[in-house]
Write a protein that binds this DNA or RNA. Sequence first.
DNA 1: CCTACCGATCGGTAGG
DNA 2: CCTACCGATCGGTAGG
Lengths: 199, 199
Amino acid sequence: MSPRKSVAEALSTRAAILERSVAIASSEGLEGLTIGRLAAELGMSKSGVLGHFGSKEALQLAVLDRAGEIFRTEVWEPARPAAPGLTRLRVLCEAWISYLERGVFPGGCFFVAAAHEFDGRPGPVRDAVAARFDAWRGRLRKEAGRAVDAGELPAGTDPDQLAFELLGAVMALNHALQLHHDPMAPSQARHAIRTRLTT
Amino acid sequence: MSPRKSVAEALSTRAAILERSVAIASSEGLEGLTIGRLAAELGMSKSGVLGHFGSKEALQLAVLDRAGEIFRTEVWEPARPAAPGLTRLRVLCEAWISYLERGVFPGGCFFVAAAHEFDGRPGPVRDAVAARFDAWRGRLRKEAGRAVDAGELPAGTDPDQLAFELLGAVMALNHALQLHHDPMAPSQARHAIRTRLTT
DNA sequence: CCTACCGATCGGTAGG
DNA sequence: CCTACCGATCGGTAGG
């Protein structure tokens, strides 16, 4: 008769809140994700939702973590079996484009959206977003460096410059898909990346 | 003794509201721009502010227009005296990068921010943002086409693909400046663009 | 996990 | 251009 739930139930409730939060925040933003809406959609009270996280900011950080797990599964993992260097870099980029093309998040890249939303608001959320971009760009740079060292890319190629340009192509893709629903954009992004990842 | 202002005064009040609105919306977003905050910062009542536009959405559209005037002055105009084709395309890109580097809008590119904020919200604001991107990308494409026709760029260069890649480089720049305050980013963007705009 | 509530703020309106 | 107000919603808390 107690309204208290078991630990297992509490965990699955928490997971359900996060699942719904990722869906909402993906299209409405991490600030547009409100406790009241979340509670209504989940058939819970606001305090029930908030009890799992403590504050809206803590919820936002947890949502970012959950979105990071999804990005890792969709984009990092497929590249694990690939050979280090150029091959793996190509697989990473193709998984990255495919993740946008398939609309894994309805609002496009979760982190690009979060970056734009929080780049002017100092705090833990902004820091968490920036850290994820640093990690991702570092990943691209590392693999690019291996490709250059192995002679798979032209000698003198700057891995950091290459990572910058790959990021640009994918950001242009994300933008074209979200704002224009442009069906040509994925092939344009693939073309841009292929040009940059050819000896 | 009347609180009513003359037409000239009303126009300058309207201009003052828009100036402040552009500043706020640039860093907080077009949705973060609230009537109450605007009124407080301008020492006016909310209804006084709203009377000039009628609704928040109408205000947002007016702010977009004002930001468009600034973009035109900063980025389109400097290219007018340049020779059509590759020369003008280079001037356009340099003005575009400089506009971001100088922080003409404190929140970075006003339209990239607005695009991310509204790409998931159908309506007049979203349509206005999309139309501005279409116009700008068309401008880049047209000048790229002239450059190809004049033999200033390699034969077979696709003007639309080139516009896509230029947009990507600048979006990566905007992102790096806003999220990381990365001082290397402008030179990386210039390098990426120079590579693409060389015979 | 709930009900019931808090102060603040939102966009907008009535009436002058 | 103002005061005074509307209903809705925000994040969060008290107390159970």
